[in-house]
Each structure stands twice: as C-alpha cells, then as structure tokens.
Design a protein around this nucleic acid. Sequence first.
DNA 1: TTCACCTGTAATAAAGTTATTACAGGTAAG
DNA 2: CTTACCTGTAATAACTTTATTACAGGTGAA
Lengths: 108, 108
Amino acid sequence: MNAEQLSTWLSAIASPQRMRILSQIVSEPLHVSELARRVQMSRPLLYMHLTKLEEAGFVAGHHELTPDGKALKLFHALPFSSTIDLATLSAAVAATDAHNTRQPDESE
Amino acid sequence: MNAEQLSTWLSAIASPQRMRILSQIVSEPLHVSELARRVQMSRPLLYMHLTKLEEAGFVAGHHELTPDGKALKLFHALPFSSTIDLATLSAAVAATDAHNTRQPDESE
DNA sequence: TTCACCTGTAATAAAGTTATTACAGGTAAG
DNA sequence: CTTACCTGTAATAACTTTATTACAGGTGAA
C-alpha cells in the first residue's frame, strides 16, 4: 500500500457523514432510499458518499428483488480492521518513493 | 471521541503530503526551512500542513537557538497507534448522537 | 552594508469536495 | 391513469482545502 492508496482509504472514512452511513448498515443492509431517510440526506448526495465508500472497500452494494417484484439496491458494511501508526505511514511513503525511483522496465 | 474529532484526526494523516512530512521527522527533528527543502514544498504551504498535524497531535514544534545564536523552529513526530474498525467508527457516531440528544443541562 | 540564512503571516488563486436541483425511467397498487 | 414507491445520473452551486505570491522582520558573517 503506497501513500496515495492509504490516503484514499483514510479519506473515505475521515468524514462524519460517511461514518454515519457506515454505522447504519453495520448490523443490517439497507436500500438506498431507506438509508437516505435514516441519515437525512438527499439520494444523489448519498450515492456520492456510497461510491467513495465502495471504492475504498468499506461497503458493497447488490441488487435484490422484493417478493412483489420491486428492484432495490441494498448496501452493507464490510468488516475491516487496521492499525495506524508512524510505521504504517512511513512504509506507505517508502512504497511511493520506491515506485517513483524505479527504472522504466521494473515490474510492479 | 466523537465523529467530528475522529474525522479531524483521520483527515490530518489522510494526505500523502502530510505523510511525507511526518516520515521525514520520525527519526530526527528538523527545522521548518530544512524540512521544506526535503519535501520540496514552499514554507507557507508547509506551515499550513504542520499546523494541521500539530492540532491533531501528530507533531510538536519548539524553538531552539543554534550555538551561534540563530533561532530555529524544530518539529518532530509524536508517537501514536490506533486501531480503526467498524466498532471504532460506530462508537464515534454514537458519541455524537448522544451529545446531540442530550438535555440542555446535561454535562460533558 | 550586503549576503545568506532563518521565522512568520496576509492575500489570493487554483483545485477538489460536498451538496442541491432537476431530470429520466422503472414497478405495483388503487 | 394516477399515486406512491424505487433506481440512477447530469449539471451546477457552495464550500473547503491546497498551493502560490508577496510581504515584514530577525541573526551572523564577509
């Protein structure tokens, strides 16, 4: 994990709004409209936040049909745990530096 | 720790630039101008980043006089370690909710 | 005095994030 | 057909963060 990736990961949860969203779908998955009502947020805005959370791997969404045939998009939180300290950050910076110093033909 | 405080803390390190700054002053303290040269950043910009890091408790700065009498401002990284997971985030959101639901006369 | 360092901040520009509004389109029930 | 739900996106406004430029002022050495 390089500095940019770690930054993307941390930025995704470093938002009170996204923390609230996440905490709502820890125990039970919810569909977008219902989730929007619970966190009192417009759907377009919620989509933006969910997209960031999904890209960083904190949530996953999947379509589901209700018994009566309505299509819902359900989201649920994915479990994770990570320890952050100076060593973690330094390692990420080192990974970035190594990448940028690398010769053109060197592989990932 | 409520959601806003956790957000401030995470946001402070969720930046590749600030990770680079931090990793430079882990082993040895450096004065502002020298640090600016190492991370290739203008001093005013570096000050802005250092202020954020200091407010979040990741670095500390102190003035020091060189043997020949020049005043330098040295910064060094403060050690820390924190585990981030769904429980941490949910607890922060709960702390915020508790605060907002509280009666006017309730204490901190 | 001039040069080469250093600290510190104010004003502003540039870029990125967050939030809103307004759409288009779907299903099922009354 | 209208009402009441749902998904999804495009355009844009409002705001925050990041970065630059331009100052003012200090010390010590040549």
